[in-house]
Design a protein around this nucleic acid. Sequence first.
RNA 1: GCCGCGUUGGUCAAGGGGUUAAGACGCCUCCCUUUCACGGAGGAAUCACGGGUUCGAAUCCCGUACGUGGUACCA
Length: 537
Amino acid sequence: MKKNSSRFFYAFILNRCVMYLCNMSKVRVRFAPSPTGGLHLGGVRTVLYNYLYAKKQGGDFIVRIEDTDQTRFVEGAEQYIFDCLKWCGMEPDESPLHGGPYAPYRQSERKETYKQYAEQLIKDGFAYYAFDTTEELENMRANFKTPENPSPQYDGKIRMQMKNSLTLSTDEVKKLLTENARHVIRIKMPAQEIISFTDMIHQEVSFDSSLVDDKVLLKADGMPTYHLAVVVDDYLMKISHAFRGEEWLSSAPVHILLWKYLFGLEHMPQWAHLPLIMGPSGKLSKRDGAKYGFPVFAMNWPQAPSASDPKTNELAEGFKEKGFLPEAFINLLAVLGWNDGTEQELYSIEELIESFSIDRVHTAGAKFDFEKAKWFNQEWIKKLPVSHYQQRVKDLFESKSILIKNDTHFNKVLELVKERCVLLTDFYDQAVFFFIAPLQYDEASVKSKWDNTKSDFFSELIARYNLIADWNLISIETEFKNLATEKNSKIGELQMLLRVILVGSKMGPGVFVIAEAIGKTETVNRIEKALVNFSMF
RNA sequence: GCCGCGUUGGUCAAGGGGUUAAGACGCCUCCCUUUCACGGAGGAAUCACGGGUUCGAAUCCCGUACGUGGUACCA
C-alpha cells in the first residue's frame, strides 16, 4: 500500500515535470473519419489507440468529420460511425454530435476558414494558384510519362511548364481570378530540403522535398484537401497528438511544411503512424471479408445500391452482427500490433487504458487472423456474466421464432452452454433443444445400439420418471442408474441414447442436467416420441 | 519506375550482442467425458537471404530479395 502510493506520488511529480518542461497543454487526440462507408477494422484500431492514449493521459478524445470530398459523401455514414463508436464503448468528448468548444467539427462547415489560410500561404510565397484543366493535367502526365517515370508529378521540375501564377503574368492571373476561372491552390514544395520529424512509432523519418509533388491544398470547389484541412484543424482544435494510419506517412512532409509555414513547428502535434492491418493476402479489404468469410466492418454496413450493378447492393457484414462482443472486438484489435511486454492477452477497456503505451506499438503491419479473433470472443463469453449479453441472445432466439417466456430460466440455460459458444450466434445451436424437442435424430449413433431391451428400458423409465415427485438432478440420475443396474445394462450406452432422445445429437451439457432443465413433462414426452421414431430405425 | 515504411514458427508475438529463442491462436497426440465443449499433459513448426563488425549476431552495420503504403482537384 505504502509502496503503491509513493509510486503514484513519484509518477505524478514526474508527469508534472514533463508537462512543465515541454510546456505541454492538455492531451487532445482526434479521430477524423470520412463519411464514405463502413468503419473497418483498421479504422476502429486507429480510434482505439487514440482513445486509449487520451484516456490514459486524462486527455480529450475528439471526433472530427472530414467530409471535404462531396463526391464521395454517403448518406448515413456519419451516424453509422457514431453508432460503431458507441457500440465499442468509446464516447467522444467532442464531436459534431456531442458538441464542444471548437465547433463546428464537420470540415464542410468550416470551408471559409481553410480558404483564408490558403490565401495566406500564397501571400507568403509558399503556395500558388494553378489554372490547369483536367485535360491539361492528363496531357502533362501522358507527355512526361516514361518507363522510368510511369507517374509524373506536378512538382518543382515541371511546375514552370504549367498554367499557374508562377508562370503567368500578374495581370493574367488577376484577370483569370476576376473572371472566376476554375483554379486550385497548390503548395510550392521547396527545391532542396530534407524534411524530417520524429514519429512516436517509427522514430526518425525523413524525406527529400524535391521528390514530393506540389499537392493541391484548396480544390476548385473551394473545399480544402485533406492536407490543408488536417493541419488547420489540428491547430485550431489544439490537437496535441496525431495518430493515424501509415498510409499517411508519405504525405507527412507536406503537413510538416504546412505547420512550419502557417503555425510554427513548435505547435505541431506529435505524430504516430500506425502500421496497417493486413488481410490473408495483402491489404485488408472489403473483398477479403467476402472471400474468407469474416467481417471487416465493426457493424453491418449496407453497400451503396448501384443501378448499374445490382450485385453491389449487398451487405458488408460487421463484427457485431457476426456475434462478437464489443469487449472482445476491442481486445483483439488492441493486441493486434501492440502488447505490454507481459503475457497478458485478455484486457478490459479499463485495463487497456492502464497498460497502453504508444511506444510499444509494432512497426510492422499485422495480418488479421479470424481464428484468433474468435478465440478472444469465446474467452469473453466465458468471462462475462450471462446477463451482460442475454438480451442479444434473446433477440437471436426470437428472430428464429422461439419466444423466451422466462428470463431466469433462459439465463440458467445460457449459463449451462456458454463455454461451448465461440460467437453469440452459437447460442442458438447450443441451446435450442432446451426450448423445442429435436426435429431429427443422429440416426447413426442410435441405429447400431437400438433394440428391444433399449426400448423396454426407456418405456419403463417413463413410468419411473412419472412417479418422481421432486424433479431434480439427483432423483433423475438416481432413477436412471437404478433402473439400468436392475436391468443389468451398460449405463454409459443408455446415457448416450437418452442424450440423442433429448437433444437429437451427441452434444451439450450433462444429460441429466438437460432433463432437469426441460422439466419432467417435456422429458417424458421426448422419450415417448423417440420410442415411436426409433422403432423405424 | 521513384520515394517512404517494414521483415522472429502458418498467424499474433516476447526477446534488442552470450537464452534449451518465452507465450497465445491454429494443427496433431493423449487424459477427462460413452456426447460436444471446457479443462489438463505433451508434440510438430521459426530468427527472409548475402556480406561485414565481434571471441560471440535473431539482436549492430551494409547490400539484396520480398511485402506494404504513397506517387489524385480521395481521404
